[in-house]
Design a protein around this nucleic acid. Structure first.
Lengths: 335, 335
DNA sequence: CCCTTTGATGTTAGCGTTTACATCCTTGCC
DNA sequence: GGCAAGGATGTAAACGCTAACATCAAAGGG
């Protein structure tokens, strides 16, 4: 397996200088159109592949944007990444994607690795990080964007929404339908910080209505949420059998709970109303359809990408962006 | 924002040569332990971050492994990537992940971009690619692994299973339960090549049992499979009302179909048996639980990673790996 | 006690590209 | 027709690191 050809080889074959080859591969460079065509042809003949590493080193631009999400297999984070990737790749950036598995230590490690690649911006999910991770991000010398959250103490820029405040929508909705003995399922896992925030928001919203909010059941770590939801529903019924509504930390947990109700012959919404969070596909398909909150993941991604592009072109004053999640009422709460 | 410190700065601060600093940041280099400690400390003080780009250029090793999958938001591809990432990152490799959105043109583009980063190996999903993509992979000069499939004409190595052959398991299962008027849902979208293979396998397996296999309904492109499954179930009932079993191209389509049955009061499995593919969480949680096929996504990822590591250390003769998917029977097919 | 061995450190050059500047040849205008 | 302006191309150096080799001191053996 022989060494792959470089610009030098192409230049030699084309009878021009290396610099002209370099220009032939750039968008806006001043090269004669005929020369460019000719060089491109020669390059193809030789099987030349541009070496981004060398270009990055010399130009001190990596064209990388680092992105960390808790989990790949999550429709919402995935949608954010798809939006981010779409918009950033159009502008010539390449997304360096990593998943933390909801583990702040793993996030720290990942950020450390990413930084060695000299990304031009870093987009992380959530506003809670290890102290070392915070320091690394602060000292990175590139734009940092925290998403999916409104951190109390942001590192750089923020594109997100308040998970806590959003719970008000669901509680209001259920109270408006006459439900009072409302339970919350999930938000007990330390690794799911957004889940914790939602639980906190539930408590606040309930207090605002003068309702007791002691019907709390855990669903554990965010892995296998459907299975956890089914189990948690059993716990809930055992502990608070007169519950008339359940707000779940996510639609996936909600679907698990819904299925458990179906198995036990509990009527939803007649006996118990059920709501989720996240506007996952399943909420739209299951029987009955699940009331949920749309956190607008695509909007988060597009907005974050737009912010990055602004920050990288003209670093003018650009403000953070607050996303407004929307309630999607469905059969599972309306009797 | 000042220029970030380099090894030179660290070397100066520590009173040693640049080379010693370089060695202090490598695992196995011969540096005095005291010197290494001292250098590391100085580096931390200065906020030095190792520049992988420069190191890659000089050493002609990128530590990148490129991976393309059709979709981020898919539990199975995600599981493969998680397994890959876990195993490869332990050995110091960084996964460069890209999603094609089930689009071969997008895959070609992505491969082109990845190649510019000089990855040390490339892992792609599936065995169908554009001609240009095939050429790029062949000429890349690094190991290429195709996964999730058994391509008739492999580019390099293969870690996968036959989507077609696997359908035999499901057809045998249903026929064994006395079902004969079996329909197949999905596999009509050109972009879902594995779905097409499964449909082909269904036809073959049915023919093997001497059964007619003309009950085919499309579910369209792989996006929003649950919704598509619900719609497709309506089509199926309209066109072949006496169907007694449905094999769906995936559990997600299957769940959509199941939900539609529930809406219409059709008993599953009593009236119609239902089976999916993929062993998604939902198959285990829905009511009734869905009979499915476990394609062992984690095993695919681990095996592919192991193969890459072998190929990159000693490029001895290493053989391809065939994965054996397993039938998981459940309530949705057993009356 | 000298010479070899070994481990720790230094020196030089170069990985493949682009920045910065210089050069040359057109083209257009008075 | 001469001269400025601009477009096309070339030259030299540098980006930050490591391979390869050289050097030096300390340790060990006869």
């Amino acid at each position: 397996m022989k060494r792959s050809p470089t610009m030098k080889d192409v230049a030699h074959a084309a009878g021009v200088s290396v610099m002209t080859v370099s220009r032939a591969f750039k968008q806006d460079a001043s090269v004669g159109e005929k020369t460019r065509q000719m060089i491109r042809e020669k390059a193809d003949e030789l099987g030349y592949v541009f070496d981004a590493t060398a270009a990055n080193l010399r130009s001190q631009r990596s064209d990388f944007v680092a992105v960390t999400i808790p989990s790949l297999n999550n429709a919402n984070f995935a949608a954010t990444v798809v939006a981010l990737t779409g918009k950033l790749s159009q502008e010539g950036y390449q997304v360096l994607l990593g998943h933390t598995n909801y583990d702040m230590m793993r996030e720290e490690e990942l950020i450390g690795q990413f930084l060695r690649r000299r990304p031009e911006a870093i987009i992380v999910t959530g506003g809670r990080h290890t102290e070392r991770a915070r320091q690394m991000l602060k000292n990175a010398g590139v734009p940092v964007i925290e998403t999916w959250d409104i951190p109390p103490n942001p590192i750089g820029h923020v594109v997100g929404f308040s998970n806590a405040d959003t719970m008000q929508l669901l509680v209001d909705h259920l109270v408006g339908l006459g439900r009072k003995r409302i339970a919350f399922m999930g938000g007990d896992s330390e690794s799911d910080t957004r889940g914790q925030d939602r639980r906190d928001g539930f408590l606040t919203a309930m207090a605002g209505h003068g309702l007791r909010a002691d019907r709390l059941v855990g669903s554990g770590a965010p892995q296998k949420p459907m299975q956890k939801g089914a189990t948690a529903m059993g716990d809930l019924l055992a502990r608070f059998s007169d519950t008339d509504a359940v707000i779940c930390v996510s639609d996936l947990v909600g679907f698990g709970a819904l299925s458990e109700c179906q198995r036990r012959g509990i009527a939803v919404p007649d006996q118990i109303a059920m709501a989720g969070f996240g506007a996952y596909d399943i909420a739209e398909v299951c029987v009955p359809r699940l009331t949920t909150i749309d956190p607008k993941p695509t909007e988060i991604g597009e907005t974050a990408a737009g912010l990055v592009l602004q920050l990288l072109s003209n670093s003018n004053a650009v403000s953070d962006k607050i996303i407004a999640p929307a309630l999607i009422p469905a059969q599972s709460t309306s009797a």
